[in-house]
Each structure stands twice: as C-alpha cells, then as structure tokens.
Design a protein around this nucleic acid. Sequence first.
RNA 1: GUGCGUGUAGUUCAGUUGGUAGAGCACCAGAUUGUGGUUCUGGUUGUCGUGGGUUCGAGCCCCAUCGCGCACC
Length: 376
Amino acid sequence: MKFVQTAADPHSNARCGLITTDHGEIRTPIFMPVGTVGSVKGVYHKELKDDINAEIILGNTYHLYLRPGLKTLRAAGGLHRFESWDRPILTDSGGFQVFSLTQIRKITEEGCTFQSHIDGSRHIFTPENNVDTQRVIGADIMMALDECCPGDADYRYAAKSLKLTQGWLERYAKRFHETEPLYGYDQTFFPIIQGCVYPELRIQAAEHALRFADAGIAIGGLAVGEPTEKMYEMLETVCPVIPADKARYLMGVGTPANLLEGIARGIDMFDCVMPTRNGRNGMLFTWNGIMNMRNAKWENDFSELDPYGTSFVDHQYSKAYLRHLFVAKEMFAGMIASEHNLAFYLDVVRQSRMHIEAGDFAEWKEEAVRKVTSRL
RNA sequence: GUGCGUGUAGUUCAGUUGGUAGAGCACCAGAUUGUGGUUCUGGUUGUCGUGGGUUCGAGCCCCAUCGCGCACC
C-alpha cells in the first residue's frame, strides 16, 4: 500500500492524494463511512458504492472480535468476503471502544482488560493479540492499539498515557512485522499520535509514531471533550511534522465544518459516526445547513429533501414524508437519512478535492463552512 | 329501569386526615464526533365531566345532573 500527494492548495495546507491498496484506490481527502459490526447501519453495500460512492469503509476490532468472533471471520475468509465488500476496509483497534463502552476495564503495561458490553465476559487486548485479531479480520488498513486520552486530561495524565501508547505501538509494530496477511492481499497499519491538547506532547508523539509509519499515520484523541479550537490548534501543531508522503487520518471527526477545517490544515482521511448515528436520529446535513427532521415545521413541506443533494433520496422523497417517517419511528427514516448524510459527506470531500486541484480551496472553504453550519 | 363502579394534561394514570394539581408516555425544542438502532437536557399542556351545596378553604365531603363501564331486571 502506498500514498502519494497529487495536488496542493496554494493558500492553505490542504492537499489531494491517492492511496493505493489491493482493493483499489482511494482519492484523498476522503471520508470513510463507519461500519462497526460489519455493516454501515441501514445502508446497502450497493448504495454505498453506486449512490454514496464510498471508497473505503470502517470496521471495528472490538465489536467484530466479540461478535461474530474470530472463528467465524476466519472461516468466512476475512471481513471483505464475509460482508461482501470488495473495496478497501480500515479497522479501528477497539482501544477507543474499550474506553467508551466498557465501564469495567483496567489498563496496564501489558494491555487492557475489559468486560464485554454484550455478556460481561472478560477479555484482554494486548498489542500482540490486537495485531493477530486484525490479521484475521483482514482490513487493508489496521490501526495500532492506543489509549485514547480524554480531552480534559491534565498534563501529567496525558504524558503518562502517551508513554503507555508509545510502548504499545513499539510492540504492535514488532508483531506486525513478524506476521503475514492471511488472505493473499496486503495489509498495512497506521500508528496513532496522542498527546491530548499539549503541543510538546503532540510533537513528541508524532516524531515517535513516524518511526513506525508506512503509508499513513493517524491523529487520535481529538474531539473527545476539548474545545474545537484546541483540536484545530493540535492539527496545526502536528501536521507540519508529518512528511508529505504519509496519509494523515484524523480519527473520529467530525461535523462537516470539522472536515473542511481539517482538510485546510492538511488532513487526508476522516471517519465519524455522526452522519449515520445523528442521521438515524433525524439530523440532516446539507449545503443549506443543518435540519432536524423531527421539527414540526416540516410537517407540510412537500419540497424535495435536499435540492443540492447528490443522492437519489434527496430528489425522490419530500421533507414532510421523511418527517412523518421519523415521527412514526419507521426504520426507513434512518435508512433515508443515513444515505443522504453519507452522500453529503462524500460530496463535501469530493468538492474539497475539486477546489484543491483548482487552487481556490481556501477561499471556497470559508463560504462552505458558513453554509454547512447554518440551520434550516 | 335498578344496583355497583367510574369521570383529573393529547393519552395512561397518581393525588395522603379537605390547604386551588403531579408522573410516565406523547407533543415542542436542544445536545450527540475512532456507533450499544441510542442516550441525555430543557420546555408546553389542565374551566379536576357539569351545576349547586357544606367549609375560611373542595380534585377529595354532600345533592343533582350528564357521559361511560359492569351486573341484574
């Protein structure tokens, strides 16, 4: 797998690039729909490809390890074949889920022990078994096991947490290079930069992580409770440290405005549950602003869902109809909203690429941010 | 027709020995950032069926009346 930069915006740090994998190419900047348990909730793979044009999707090691489990995944021949998706997949290590989903957990030098949110059973993730697990899942891009430090952590905690993450990364890389892909196509892994909101920790973390980076590197521990401005500051701190030949992945982010601001600071890859989870809850993102489809004001608005939308749902269904589906708690509501939101997110990065190549991204971005943050 | 029961927010109901009403859901908004098909945070809503009476004071006690339910003629 490799990454090459193909264009750069003259007035910002935005850039375009191309990631090449054995499952096809990914044009960056890109947004990656989240498919935690082996499905992008409520969206057919056919729609993901043909309508949304997702070039890569996510899976999650924590969830897939618990269910269906490694035995089934191995017997299926890996996640691609299991869920019948022939484009690239990235798997998160599950470190974040251990911290966000599990109350009962313990972090040690060795790894993290936790109880399943499904049946309470006890498990341990170590850097070594996490590599093995992600080999079985078979993602094109594997993520290193890290500790996601809360955004409001004090310096002492953040420094200690970073040290742990760095120790885990060294072991993770060692195991990665000692093992082989299981299904005949290449796998790579991204190390993760932590360091909370402390610039010196972030820079130190970046320099350390870069020693293990192949095609790309991730920035984690952002959008986890710190002010948004702090997140942008950290991107401005870290991105210049990363050489141009590494793809930069901002984990778990974010709003459409976060994407645009991230791209302007040099980020190439994003993932976030927001378009799907908030979509299932009635929140729609559009070039006209944010809509809450549950609001009474749509009750008799029979105009098309989103006149600027790129998805077929935007022109086939009306606002009033979608509101009705949400009020009636029909699962079709979540499906339409997810399809729209993902198509919109992919449109945001597609238009960003277009403007970077045209050299007018910085100027266009200002207006775009205003549009996507307004309310309808 | 007779007997018993019942009537309180849009809805299901709570409401102590009488001190002018609350909850869940619904409804109206807001939050949600490496997904537990959620969760959280606010807000609106009442001629206590109606008319009288007792009382300083009635959702509560008394009378009448109307609606509904059940049982029996």
